[in-house]
């Protein structure tokens, strides 16, 4: 389980996150939703210790993050984080060199699933394919937790469909996934849990099936209530 407790983060005098708390379970897809600029990416960066926090605590399976944690949790940002001049095959080799949890068999499978060519250079890929390479490099790690930042933003409809299919596949099965988005449509049926963010606080945290079952509301219905009500 990933536990975010009372997370506060300031940029200069501006408080971006003001006591954020939520949990994300293993085996579940948790979705952080909020309009742009509410600090969703900052939360993911903070979980991965890629930015300092002002106060609060983040635990992964009860532990603070340490170097071995990166074999257990990984982050797929919305931009490529491999060297652009690398070929996909070289990027995979880099991953294999540095991570014990790299699973080449799975990588090959995802390569096929996304119809990527391993000799292509990352710098020469379309936006959709770049996003897929990013996903490939994260999904092929045998990690317990996957964080994804806006996996659907700014890419074509067919790539979106392909990427959405990942979430109903064994590629994320049994793992804990946190994804951020400002657009829920592509994945409304796929997520287990929603954390709504606004003005640096969690405005609502709910289980999607429960809200449908108990209140007969869609995720968008709840968002409308929270943001406009």
């Amino acid at each position: 389980m990933i536990e975010v407790k009372e997370l506060t983060k300031k940029f200069g005098s501006k408080t971006v996150l003001n006591g954020i708390s939520f949990t994300a379970d293993k085996g579940q897809i948790t979705c952080l939703i909020g309009i742009n600029g509410v600090g969703k990416t900052t939360i993911l960066n903070a979980i991965m210790a890629l930015t300092p926090i002002n106060s609060g605590e983040i635990l992964i399976d009860g532990e603070k993050i340490h170097k071995e944690s990166y074999e257990k949790i990984t982050f797929i940002p919305d931009a490529t984080i491999m060297l652009p001049q690398m070929r996909i095959s070289e990027a995979m080799q880099f991953m294999a060199d540095f991570y014990d949890c790299w699973n080449q068999k799975r990588a090959d499978e995802i390569l096929q699933f996304f119809r990527l060519k391993e000799n292509d250079r990352i710098s020469e890929l379309s936006k959709g394919n770049t996003a897929k390479v990013n996903l490939l490099l994260g999904l092929a790690m045998d990690v317990d937790y996957l964080l994804m930042d806006e996996p659907f933003s700014g890419i074509d409809i067919f790539s979106r469909e392909q990427i959405a299919n990942v979430f109903s596949s064994h590629l994320v099965e049994d793992r804990g996934v946190i994804i951020t988005t400002h657009e829920i449509n592509d994945i409304e049926h796929l997520i287990d849990k929603v954390v709504l963010l606004d003005n640096g606080v969690v405005t609502k945290e709910f289980n999607t099936e429960e809200i449908r079952e108990n209140e007969g509301k869609s995720v968008v219905d709840v968002m409308r209530e929270v943001y406009q009500g």
Partner: peptide, 16 residues
Amino acid sequence: GKNTFVYRLLMLPTAR
């Protein structure tokens, strides 16, 4: 640049 490799470097399972 667009490709910020520092993400990868800081997420390597080794002492920074």
